[in-house]
């Protein structure tokens, strides 16, 4: 295909992506180095008869508005927003580093700073949910592969439900069940023999619930892909392994898993990207008191009573850097392979 033809075919989609994906990335970077204007103060001398004169400092509404209109981005502050308490909290971290007696108290106090708190949950969620999704997906795929042909359609239908359901709705459905008055909440109280137990009250339990939701939501995705991979399994290799005396587990470990390896890599990559943006379950589970993610922090800055655009922008930039770090091994490998091929 000629360059010009390609250009015209690709133009609409490229425009959409440039305007609404690439430009916003530039926009958050710019917004993150500006901060809202401070209000302009003026001193007004008010004189009342008999009492005398006094000067009052008030906000000059008109001048403030004029300043906002002249420079809608705000005033340039450089990297100040990145280093303030709400983000990297450089000053606070240095103080903790110098004053805290040991590692555990250092990390405890670090966990109280909003950005590190969100980072801790996001990374924990990403790196626990992703392997669990692969494991559960693989187990379900192996098990479903053995059931009767007629049942497979039904099993796949029900398995797909947690995956296609709107994340917020899926989270709400589970949340209502684990409520202290819901069926699972009651069951857990009964199992633990503690009628006052509430998952909502404890940070640890809330993290576990969110992780369970994450696995429940994404395992069907892994299952469907692994199940498709199992259909192309070379039977002669399985039989050869069996003749060589490999046990059932060894056949799975040394024949099936290597065969599925490209698919496992694919699922891992997709899951890392999706779990790093974990957001809806925190809203659905009403869990912000116990667990905050980077995406949730941005959402909170944007949707609060006072919109904090530059704070949200700084968190966004750091989230994008996080995504880049996550993707870098894949990108590096692709770049290397491509250079080798060329």
């Amino acid at each position: 295909m000629r360059h010009t033809t390609f250009f015209w075919f690709f133009l609409p989609t490229a425009t959409a992506m440039l305007l609404f994906i690439a430009a916003p990335i530039v926009s958050v970077v710019i917004q993150s180095v500006f901060a809202p204007h401070e209000a302009v103060f003026i001193e007004v001398e008010s004189c009342t008869p008999l009492v005398g004169c006094k000067t009052e400092t008030t906000i000059d509404q008109e001048a403030t508005r004029a300043l906002k209109e002249a420079q809608p981005l705000g005033r340039f502050v450089g990297l100040e927003t990145y280093f303030n308490r709400g983000h990297l909290a450089v000053a606070e971290v240095r103080e903790l580093w110098l004053n805290e007696p040991d590692w555990s108290s250092f990390f405890n106090r670090l966990g109280n700073l909003p950005f590190y708190r969100a980072m801790a949950f996001t990374l924990t969620f990403t790196f626990i949910v992703t392997p669990l999704v692969i494991l559960v997906g693989l187990m379900v795929a192996l098990a479903v592969n053995t059931v009767h042909e007629r049942l497979k359609g039904v099993v796949i239908f029900f398995s797909l439900l947690p995956f296609v359901i709107t994340p917020l709705i899926g989270a709400l459905v589970l949340f209502w069940m684990i409520d202290a008055r819901g069926i699972l909440g009651t069951a857990i109280q009964w199992l633990a023999n503690d009628p006052d137990l509430s998952l909502k009250a404890s940070t640890g339990m809330m993290w576990v619930s969110l992780i369970v939701y994450g696995v429940w939501h994404a395992a069907p995705f892994a299952f469907v892909i692994f199940y498709a991979g199992l259909q192309t399994l070379p039977l002669d290799q399985i039989e050869a392994a069996q003749i060589d005396g490999a046990s059932r587990f060894q056949r799975v470990r040394y024949v099936v898993v290597p065969h599925l390896m490209p698919l496992i890599t694919f699922v891992a990559l997709m899951q890392l990207m999706d779990n790093f943006r974990v957001f809806e379950p925190i809203v659905g589970f009403n869990a912000e008191a116990h667990a905050q993610s980077l995406s949730w922090a941005i959402f909170n800055d944007l949707g609060g009573e006072v919109q904090q655009l530059s704070s949200a922008a700084a968190t966004s930039v750091m989230t994008i850097i996080g995504v880049a770090i996550l993707l870098s091994p894949v990108l590096y490998r692709t770049w290397r392979d491509n250079r080798r091929a060329a």
Binding site: M17, F20, I21, A22, A23, P24, I25, V26, S27, V28, Q31, P72, L73, M273, F276, R277, F279, L294, S295, I298, F299, D301, L302, Q307, L309, A312, A313, T315, S316, V317, T319, I320, V323, A324, L326, L327, L331
Partner: peptide, 17 residues
């Protein structure tokens, strides 16, 4: 692929202003 990895909420904070 890189664009696919961007969390939508980070883009939203770029749109609002």
């Amino acid at each position: 692929l890189i664009f696919r990895a961007m969390p939508p909420i980070t883009l939203v904070s770029g749109y609002l202003l």
